[in-house]
Design a protein around this nucleic acid. Structure first.
Lengths: 153, 153
DNA sequence: CCAGAAAGGTTGCATAACGAAACCAAATAA
DNA sequence: TTATTTGGTTTCGTTATGCAACCTTTCTGG
């Protein structure tokens, strides 16, 4: 009767959520993107309990999203850093942030800007090969043979 | 000692996760994007317990992500459909799906294609105003006055 | 070098969330 | 009319989360 995990559902989204869909996980990743690396800093910046933070960091490390780097002179001082896989979640986190801002208004005093130009980012969108923006209604779900997937039944 | 929610953290990402970050929530949204509308269909397609599904649907409706539409002749037959706000999560779900496929391989027999051309979608990316792709290292986090945010301390 | 603080946990306990199955009323199908 | 489907709610056992206390190793100040 353990909580059902999403790894054996044959679905990429489920698989992703299995790795970063726990309560707090994506916030830890977001915080790491802001530059936080130390255990105590995550703790204070997020207001998360130590045991939960410990669990989430371990889990993220196990899933290859972060790495624990030994920075103490004689060990026992660590930094948690994003891996390439973890940094690649930037799209997801940014999409979530923008979605929230669009529908719930600015909840964040912080803004994201292009380091080069200082301009705000463009909205993250789903696009086709030609760069045209697509909504969920502009796509089809097909199986491996290209046959349309009829669902909902 | 109730579970800490993310609505009062002054962070857009946290606010978003507060609405769709519960276990199962985003999978329900994804399933809705595949065309599922009925309670029983969500239940069977996802393999979720009825009480949890009930809770998540209610929560999604409360948060304006879905609506419950009465489709029975005399009431008591419902459909759950995505609102505009819900459909706007397409970017998030697609980014998650692609992230999983990039780092964990194809876990999905299903593919997403442009309805017009039949071609697979382009990778979702964060871009600046000029359409150039940005990584997390190409952005800066600034406060309302444009001053850089020094974090992690 | 020594005392004390800080980092990075672990443990125990109370409460909330989750999962499975049973149960139930209204609406529909046979 | 009876059976079945839909869309739940209830109950109960297990797991997850939150908080505080504690613990060991490493740094810091003197």
């Amino acid at each position: 009767m353990t909580r059902k995990r999403f790894d054996e559902m044959g679905c990429s989204v489920a698989c992703a959520l299995n790795e970063v869909g726990d309560w707090w996980s994506l916030l830890v990743v977001k915080q790491a993107m802001l530059g936080t690396r130390r255990f105590v800093d995550f703790q204070h910046n997020l207001g998360i309990a130590k045991n939960i933070l410990c669990n989430r960091l371990t889990r993220l490390v196990d899933n290859g999203v972060m790495v624990r780097v030994d920075v103490g002179e004689h060990g026992k001082r660590y930094e948690y850093r994003l891996t390439d896989k973890g940094r690649d979640l930037f799209t997801v986190v940014t999409a979530l942030r923008q979605w929230s801002e669009r529908w719930n208004g600015e909840k964040d005093s912080m803004q994201l800007v292009d380091r080069q130009t200082g301009e705000p980012l463009a909205p993250v969108t789903v696009q086709n090969q030609q760069g045209q923006t697509l909504t969920v209604r502009d796509v089809r779900f097909v199986d491996e043979d290209g046959k349309p997937l009829e669902e909902a039944g």
